[in-house]
């Protein structure tokens, strides 16, 4: 509001008006036609100035110097004290926003980004550790498989040797038993032959006894 109030107040410069007064009549008449609509459209004019302008248009032929003064007031570039005040105000606003908003939030965002990047880099390091651990696991598995294969080979060899020894011992025992069995069979054969001879003598005597009593 203060800016607009100060902007609306327009200080008069009598030196300029006095210098503009001896202008010829024809240029004023030519200028008056195009500037009127632009004046209404562009510039904010207060009520007393508007009334004074309307009052100035009515006696157009008679009061030409007053119309010239009105046009001079409604210039396109009417700078006043508002310009440096807005500059100072803008700089103060810049400093305030910088201290309140930009610097603290910027630092906070930078710190957060740095923390996130550190976490990402640590994730990469753990991925490398994972690769190393996988390689170690593969090596351990290979070594274990090799050891298992060697142990299996040694066990197979030992078991084959033991089996062969037991088979040999079994064969020896079986042959010994066979020989004993054969010898016992021969003895029984001789005994059975002797018993058969004695039986034959007995039978022959019985046959003779049967035949002689009837003769």
């Amino acid at each position: 509001m203060a800016n607009m109030i100060m902007a609306s107040t327009k200080p008069l410069v009598p030196v300029c008006t006095s210098s503009r007064s001896p202008t010829p009549k024809l240029p004023i008449l030519q200028i008056s036609l195009p500037k009127a609509p632009t004046l209404k459209l562009k510039l904010p004019i207060s009520k007393p100035q508007m009334l004074s302008l309307l009052g100035g248009i009515a006696p157009l032929v008679l009061a030409r110097p007053s119309l010239a003064e009105e046009f001079e007031k409604a210039a396109l570039f009417d700078f006043n004290l508002t310009l440096p005040i807005i500059m100072v105000e803008f700089l103060l606003l810049m400093v305030a926003l910088d201290k309140i908003w930009f610097t603290p939030l910027g630092k906070f965002m930078d710190e957060r980004d740095a923390a996130i990047r550190e976490k990402l880099s640590s994730v990469k390091d753990t991925s490398e550790e994972v690769k190393q651990l996988e390689e170690k696991a593969n090596a351990v598995m290979a070594a274990a498989r090799a050891e298992i294969a060697a142990a299996l080979n040694t066990m197979k060899k030992e078991t084959q040797a033991e089996v062969e020894q037991k088979i040999a011992e079994g064969r020896k025992k079986v042959e010994a038993e066979l020989q004993e069995a054969l010898s016992s069979l021969e003895n029984q054969k001789e005994e059975t032959i002797k018993s058969l001879d004695s039986q034959i003598a007995a039978l022959s005597q019985e046959i003779v006894n049967k035949v002689l009593p009837t003769a």
């Binding site: 800016n3 009417d78 006043n80 508002t82 807005i86």
Partner: peptide, 16 residues
């Protein structure tokens, strides 16, 4: 004194 308008409506603001 005058109309109330946006600050950028005045040429002093833009020139500043």
């Amino acid at each position: 004194h005058g109309e109330l308008a946006a600050p950028t409506n005045d040429i002093n603001t833009t020139v500043a």
